[in-house]
Design a protein around this nucleic acid. Sequence first.
DNA 1: ATGGCGGCTCGCAGCCGA
Length: 254
Amino acid sequence: MKIATWNVNSLQVRLPHVLSWMKSEQPDVLALQETKIQDVNFPIETILDAGYQVVYAGEKSYNGVAIFSKKQPKELTQALPHFADSQKRFLGVTIQGVRILNLYVPNGSEVGSEKFQYKLMWLSQLKDYVKQQAKQYDQLILLGDFNIAPEERDVHDPAAWEGSVLVSEPEREKWRELLAEGLSDTFRLFYDEGGYYSWWDYRMNAFRRNLGLRIDHILVSQALAQCCRAVHIDRLPRTWERPSDHAPVVAEFA
DNA sequence: ATGGCGGCTCGCAGCCGA
Protein backbone atom coordinates (compact mmCIF):
# COMPACT_ATOMS: atom_id res chain seq x y z
CA MET A 1 0.00 0.00 0.00
CA LYS A 2 1.25 3.44 -0.96
CA ILE A 3 -0.16 6.33 1.06
CA ALA A 4 0.60 10.03 0.69
CA THR A 5 -0.15 13.41 2.22
CA TRP A 6 -0.04 16.78 0.48
CA ASN A 7 -1.01 20.26 1.54
CA VAL A 8 -2.06 21.63 -1.84
CA ASN A 9 -2.83 25.25 -0.83
CA SER A 10 -6.05 25.44 -2.89
CA LEU A 11 -7.31 22.40 -4.77
CA GLN A 12 -8.89 24.74 -7.30
CA VAL A 13 -5.48 26.05 -8.33
CA ARG A 14 -3.55 22.79 -7.80
CA LEU A 15 -5.97 20.31 -9.40
CA PRO A 16 -3.79 19.84 -12.53
CA HIS A 17 -0.76 19.14 -10.33
CA VAL A 18 -2.70 16.69 -8.17
CA LEU A 19 -4.08 14.80 -11.16
CA SER A 20 -0.70 14.64 -12.86
CA TRP A 21 1.01 13.50 -9.70
CA MET A 22 -1.58 10.81 -8.96
CA LYS A 23 -1.31 9.50 -12.50
CA SER A 24 2.46 9.04 -12.28
CA GLU A 25 2.75 7.99 -8.61
CA GLN A 26 -0.39 5.86 -8.32
CA PRO A 27 -0.90 6.20 -4.56
CA ASP A 28 -3.53 3.95 -3.04
CA VAL A 29 -4.48 6.77 -0.69
CA LEU A 30 -3.85 10.51 -1.00
CA ALA A 31 -4.75 12.81 1.89
CA LEU A 32 -5.04 16.50 1.01
CA GLN A 33 -5.06 19.58 3.23
CA GLU A 34 -5.93 23.22 2.55
CA THR A 35 -8.31 22.37 -0.25
CA LYS A 36 -9.97 25.76 0.34
CA ILE A 37 -13.04 24.59 -1.50
CA GLN A 38 -16.66 24.31 -0.42
CA ASP A 39 -18.26 20.88 -0.66
CA VAL A 40 -20.75 22.06 -3.31
CA ASN A 41 -17.85 22.99 -5.58
CA PHE A 42 -15.73 19.87 -5.02
CA PRO A 43 -14.54 18.39 -8.36
CA ILE A 44 -16.00 14.95 -7.62
CA GLU A 45 -16.40 13.79 -11.22
CA THR A 46 -12.82 14.67 -12.13
CA ILE A 47 -11.48 12.59 -9.24
CA LEU A 48 -13.81 9.67 -9.99
CA ASP A 49 -12.71 9.78 -13.63
CA ALA A 50 -9.11 9.48 -12.41
CA GLY A 51 -10.06 6.18 -10.78
CA TYR A 52 -10.34 7.32 -7.16
CA GLN A 53 -13.05 7.34 -4.52
CA VAL A 54 -13.37 10.66 -2.72
CA VAL A 55 -14.42 12.01 0.67
CA TYR A 56 -14.05 15.62 1.76
CA ALA A 57 -14.88 18.23 4.35
CA GLY A 58 -14.50 21.77 3.11
CA GLU A 59 -15.39 25.35 3.83
CA LYS A 60 -15.09 28.68 2.11
CA SER A 61 -11.64 30.28 1.68
CA TYR A 62 -9.73 28.40 4.36
CA ASN A 63 -8.76 24.93 5.58
CA GLY A 64 -10.53 21.94 4.04
CA VAL A 65 -9.41 18.30 3.85
CA ALA A 66 -10.03 15.43 1.44
CA ILE A 67 -9.04 11.80 0.94
CA PHE A 68 -8.75 10.12 -2.46
CA SER A 69 -8.48 6.33 -2.45
CA LYS A 70 -8.54 3.48 -4.92
CA LYS A 71 -10.59 1.36 -2.51
CA GLN A 72 -13.88 2.26 -0.88
CA PRO A 73 -13.47 4.38 2.29
CA LYS A 74 -15.60 3.32 5.25
CA GLU A 75 -16.43 4.64 8.72
CA LEU A 76 -16.19 8.29 7.67
CA THR A 77 -15.54 10.74 10.51
CA GLN A 78 -15.67 14.40 9.50
CA ALA A 79 -14.60 16.07 12.73
CA LEU A 80 -12.88 15.35 16.01
CA PRO A 81 -15.61 14.14 18.37
CA HIS A 82 -16.50 16.10 21.52
CA PHE A 83 -14.89 19.25 20.10
CA ALA A 84 -16.99 22.07 18.70
CA ASP A 85 -14.85 23.25 15.79
CA SER A 86 -16.23 25.13 12.81
CA GLN A 87 -12.93 24.74 10.93
CA LYS A 88 -12.61 21.77 8.57
CA ARG A 89 -9.32 20.21 9.59
CA PHE A 90 -10.07 16.55 10.19
CA LEU A 91 -11.15 13.54 8.18
CA GLY A 92 -11.09 9.92 9.31
CA VAL A 93 -11.72 6.85 7.14
CA THR A 94 -11.12 3.14 7.29
CA ILE A 95 -9.75 1.52 4.14
CA GLN A 96 -9.21 -2.23 4.04
CA GLY A 97 -9.00 -2.36 7.82
CA VAL A 98 -6.51 0.50 8.10
CA ARG A 99 -7.75 3.49 10.12
CA ILE A 100 -6.56 6.71 8.46
CA LEU A 101 -6.74 10.14 10.10
CA ASN A 102 -6.08 13.09 7.79
CA LEU A 103 -5.04 16.21 9.74
CA TYR A 104 -4.64 19.89 9.03
CA VAL A 105 -3.32 21.04 12.39
CA PRO A 106 -3.85 24.78 13.04
CA ASN A 107 -0.90 27.00 12.21
CA GLY A 108 -0.92 28.82 15.55
CA SER A 109 0.01 32.24 14.16
CA GLU A 110 2.22 33.41 17.05
CA VAL A 111 3.30 31.74 20.27
CA GLY A 112 0.98 32.87 23.04
CA SER A 113 -1.74 34.15 20.73
CA GLU A 114 -5.38 33.06 20.78
CA LYS A 115 -4.71 30.98 17.65
CA PHE A 116 -1.78 29.34 19.39
CA GLN A 117 -4.04 28.32 22.29
CA TYR A 118 -6.50 26.92 19.76
CA LYS A 119 -3.67 24.89 18.19
CA LEU A 120 -2.67 23.39 21.54
CA MET A 121 -6.31 22.65 22.39
CA TRP A 122 -6.80 21.04 18.97
CA LEU A 123 -3.76 18.81 19.53
CA SER A 124 -5.04 17.83 22.98
CA GLN A 125 -8.37 16.82 21.50
CA LEU A 126 -6.54 14.87 18.81
CA LYS A 127 -4.49 13.01 21.40
CA ASP A 128 -7.64 11.97 23.27
CA TYR A 129 -9.15 10.67 20.05
CA VAL A 130 -5.95 8.85 19.06
CA LYS A 131 -5.80 7.18 22.45
CA GLN A 132 -9.28 5.78 21.83
CA GLN A 133 -8.62 4.89 18.17
CA ALA A 134 -5.39 3.06 19.01
CA LYS A 135 -7.37 0.70 21.24
CA GLN A 136 -9.85 0.06 18.45
CA TYR A 137 -7.50 -0.24 15.46
CA ASP A 138 -4.27 -2.20 15.29
CA GLN A 139 -3.41 -0.49 12.01
CA LEU A 140 -3.61 3.28 12.55
CA ILE A 141 -2.20 6.10 10.41
CA LEU A 142 -2.09 9.82 11.20
CA LEU A 143 -0.95 11.94 8.31
CA GLY A 144 -1.14 15.49 7.15
CA ASP A 145 0.15 18.98 7.78
CA PHE A 146 1.03 18.92 11.49
CA ASN A 147 2.45 22.44 11.45
CA ILE A 148 5.15 21.22 13.83
CA ALA A 149 8.83 20.73 13.06
CA PRO A 150 9.52 18.08 15.74
CA GLU A 151 13.25 18.56 16.25
CA GLU A 152 16.15 20.86 15.40
CA ARG A 153 17.18 18.64 12.49
CA ASP A 154 13.78 19.39 10.91
CA VAL A 155 14.55 23.12 10.70
CA HIS A 156 16.93 24.76 8.20
CA ASP A 157 18.07 27.42 10.67
CA PRO A 158 17.20 26.43 14.25
CA ALA A 159 18.77 29.57 15.71
CA ALA A 160 16.63 31.86 13.55
CA TRP A 161 13.49 29.87 14.33
CA GLU A 162 14.12 29.32 18.03
CA GLY A 163 10.97 29.66 20.12
CA SER A 164 8.71 30.64 17.24
CA VAL A 165 5.51 29.01 16.12
CA LEU A 166 5.97 25.58 14.44
CA VAL A 167 9.06 24.83 16.53
CA SER A 168 8.17 26.02 20.05
CA GLU A 169 8.46 23.71 23.03
CA PRO A 170 4.70 23.54 23.83
CA GLU A 171 4.03 22.35 20.27
CA ARG A 172 6.86 19.82 20.34
CA GLU A 173 5.58 18.56 23.68
CA LYS A 174 2.20 17.87 22.01
CA TRP A 175 4.03 16.05 19.24
CA ARG A 176 5.84 13.83 21.75
CA GLU A 177 2.57 13.13 23.58
CA LEU A 178 1.06 11.94 20.30
CA LEU A 179 3.99 9.60 19.63
CA ALA A 180 3.69 8.31 23.19
CA GLU A 181 0.36 6.80 22.14
CA GLY A 182 2.42 4.20 20.29
CA LEU A 183 3.05 5.96 16.99
CA SER A 184 6.23 6.18 14.92
CA ASP A 185 7.33 9.01 12.65
CA THR A 186 7.79 6.92 9.49
CA PHE A 187 10.28 9.35 7.97
CA ARG A 188 12.67 8.82 10.88
CA LEU A 189 12.57 5.06 10.38
CA PHE A 190 14.69 5.67 7.28
CA TYR A 191 16.56 8.96 7.70
CA ASP A 192 18.60 10.25 10.63
CA GLU A 193 20.10 13.38 9.17
CA GLY A 194 18.70 16.88 8.80
CA GLY A 195 18.19 18.83 5.60
CA TYR A 196 14.95 17.13 4.59
CA TYR A 197 11.97 19.48 4.47
CA SER A 198 8.36 19.35 3.31
CA TRP A 199 7.62 23.09 3.20
CA TRP A 200 9.52 26.06 1.81
CA ASP A 201 8.44 29.71 1.91
CA TYR A 202 7.39 31.13 -1.44
CA ARG A 203 9.67 34.10 -0.78
CA MET A 204 13.43 34.54 -0.86
CA ASN A 205 14.03 31.65 -3.28
CA ALA A 206 13.62 29.47 -0.21
CA PHE A 207 13.06 26.25 -2.15
CA ARG A 208 16.05 26.70 -4.42
CA ARG A 209 18.20 27.37 -1.34
CA ASN A 210 16.50 24.53 0.61
CA LEU A 211 15.47 26.85 3.42
CA GLY A 212 12.57 24.82 4.75
CA LEU A 213 10.86 22.96 7.55
CA ARG A 214 9.72 19.36 7.89
CA ILE A 215 6.15 19.84 9.10
CA ASP A 216 4.16 17.31 7.03
CA HIS A 217 4.24 13.85 8.55
CA ILE A 218 3.05 10.27 8.40
CA LEU A 219 2.73 8.60 11.81
CA VAL A 220 1.82 4.93 12.17
CA SER A 221 1.07 2.36 14.85
CA GLN A 222 3.63 -0.37 15.56
CA ALA A 223 1.87 -2.95 13.40
CA LEU A 224 2.33 -0.66 10.39
CA ALA A 225 5.81 0.54 11.35
CA GLN A 226 6.96 -3.06 11.08
CA CYS A 227 5.81 -3.34 7.48
CA CYS A 228 6.81 0.19 6.36
CA ARG A 229 9.23 -0.29 3.46
CA ALA A 230 10.03 3.25 2.30
CA VAL A 231 9.27 6.92 2.91
CA HIS A 232 10.15 9.91 0.81
CA ILE A 233 9.38 13.57 0.37
CA ASP A 234 8.66 14.21 -3.30
CA ARG A 235 10.25 17.55 -4.15
CA LEU A 236 9.38 17.36 -7.83
CA PRO A 237 5.94 19.06 -7.74
CA ARG A 238 7.55 21.97 -5.85
CA THR A 239 9.57 22.66 -9.04
CA TRP A 240 6.48 22.88 -11.22
CA GLU A 241 4.91 26.13 -12.33
CA ARG A 242 2.71 27.75 -9.65
CA PRO A 243 3.38 25.06 -7.04
CA SER A 244 2.01 24.47 -3.57
CA ASP A 245 4.50 25.58 -0.94
CA HIS A 246 4.35 22.01 0.48
CA ALA A 247 5.68 18.81 -1.06
CA PRO A 248 3.91 15.44 -0.94
CA VAL A 249 5.17 12.93 1.64
CA VAL A 250 4.82 9.29 0.62
CA ALA A 251 5.03 6.07 2.66
CA GLU A 252 4.95 2.52 1.29
CA PHE A 253 3.88 -0.59 3.20
CA ALA A 254 4.32 -4.26 2.44
C1' DA B 1 13.54 35.82 7.76
C1' DT B 2 9.59 40.37 10.54
C1' DG B 3 8.99 39.94 4.40
C1' DG B 4 10.17 40.31 -0.15
C1' DC B 5 4.93 35.11 -1.97
C1' DG B 6 0.63 33.50 -3.11
C1' DG B 7 -3.86 31.86 -1.79
C1' DC B 8 -8.51 33.86 -0.66
C1' DT B 9 -12.54 37.51 -0.92
C1' DC B 10 -19.59 40.74 -2.79
C1' DG B 11 -11.68 42.00 -4.47
C1' DC B 12 -8.44 46.74 -6.83
C1' DA B 13 -6.41 46.09 -0.12
C1' DG B 14 -6.24 43.27 3.61
C1' DC B 15 -6.22 38.86 5.82
C1' DC B 16 -3.99 34.44 6.35
C1' DG B 17 -0.55 30.93 5.98
C1' DA B 18 4.27 28.92 7.48
